[in-house]
Design a binder for these strands. Structure first.
Lengths: 204, 204
DNA sequence: CTTTTACTAGAACTAGATTCTAGTTATGCT
DNA sequence: AGCATAACTAGAATCTAGTTCTAGTAAAAG
């Protein structure tokens, strides 16, 4: 029987499972001991598989790290977009970004913590994939907010300024909380930061 | 002749020089190839010294990275405090934080870029040193801003919220610029971000 | 049922971080 | 000055951990 899409065969069920197992194991190791702190052997043991298997699926230790990172970002982005679509109006949307950031980071603490790490040497192709993921996300988000800017409900600013202005503070707060510098969980300051974001964004 | 402070001898002139040379060499390597990407051999060649010498002064590769990080942060902090002391009033002070962040990052681009990396496995003592540096800094900064909060010129917020709210956005912008995602240098958005910080901070 | 391809295993290899031993140079003290 | 001690430098040897390689097993395609 001819396969519907010839370019890419469906991976076996076992493959999907193994990759997922490895990524989960890696997340556990990475978030406990850091990327440098975990060895291939650690991941291997945690995932109950052989070195060969790891290298077959991911090519290298950094390959595992990349994959985990890109998948995590994608999950976050999907969640954010879903949340935005349920909003009405500019204020609710801007605040939703901040609130979602809080909620998601609290719910997915170890993944969030991993996504804050900067120590992955992305390979060229991985960098490209990540860029693509990010651009698709930004396109969706800007499409969402565009009308509010057009109508004057939100300020008109250089495009590069929006993300840092809206997410910068909560991101920084969460980062510090995740790395143990701050005690109080983000939920406590959620509304404060949401209000602050809106203060900055609302039209004059 | 008895030494004034017996606990810690003055290091030799040659020692000071060599440490500085190594740190400069390391910064060059790290910011070009990343921490993982540079080998001890690279630093050794760039600094014109032997492996033994490196290990004598810094104990390990991470030791070099730690030292560079802590020294960089200290430099940044000193500059910020100096700048603040020249300010009059709450608005000028808040805006000065943002402006200084911009200016310093632009002037010390490679060091700034290095300080944004998160991939250093700090040893326990280094972590403590860093914490001490940070707390001294925070104490000075809060002493500076305290009166403005007391007088109502600035809002009263949970202490942990100030740094993320004021510096978060510009920090995020600069980070993206340093890693090549944004084209326009921070100078271009400096006043915009300074205004935003003040919008968030000024009393109602 | 055979051929091909995806996948697994673990031993062998290798790059690079760290340790060790042997020296050299400066400083403090009498 | 001259000895003792500590700071420092050098580079070979070691050891850890990432990667590669070869041989095999299981599953899908035809």
């Amino acid at each position: 029987m001819r396969r519907t899409r010839q370019e890419k065969a469906e991976p076996r069920a076992a493959t999907v499972a193994r990759r997922a197992t490895v990524l989960a194991a890696a997340l556990e190791c990475f978030s406990r001991d850091g990327i440098d702190g975990t060895t291939i052997g650690d991941i291997q043991k945690a995932a109950n598989c052989s070195v060969g298997s790891l290298y077959h699926h991911f090519g290298s230790k950094d390959g595992i790290a990349e994959e985990l990172f890109i998948e995590g970002i994608s999950r976050f982005n999907r969640g954010m977009v879903r949340r935005l679509r349920r909003c009405r109006g500019a204020e609710e949307s801007v605040k939703a970004v901040v609130r979602f950031y809080c909620d998601w980071s609290t719910r997915n603490r170890s993944l969030a913590s991993y996504l804050h790490s900067r120590d992955i040497d992305f390979s060229e192709p991985a960098r490209d994939r990540l860029k693509a993921v990010y651009q698709r996300y930004i396109a969706e988000v800007f499409t969402w907010f565009g009308p509010f800017v057009a109508s004057g409900e939100m300020r008109t600013l250089p495009p590069d300024a929006y993300v840092p202005l809206i997410s910068g503070p909560i991101q920084e707060y969460v980062r510090r909380w995740l790395s143990g510098h701050y005690e109080r969980p983000p939920g406590v300051v959620k509304e404060l930061f949401a209000d602050a974001a809106w203060r900055v964004m609302r039209g004059p």
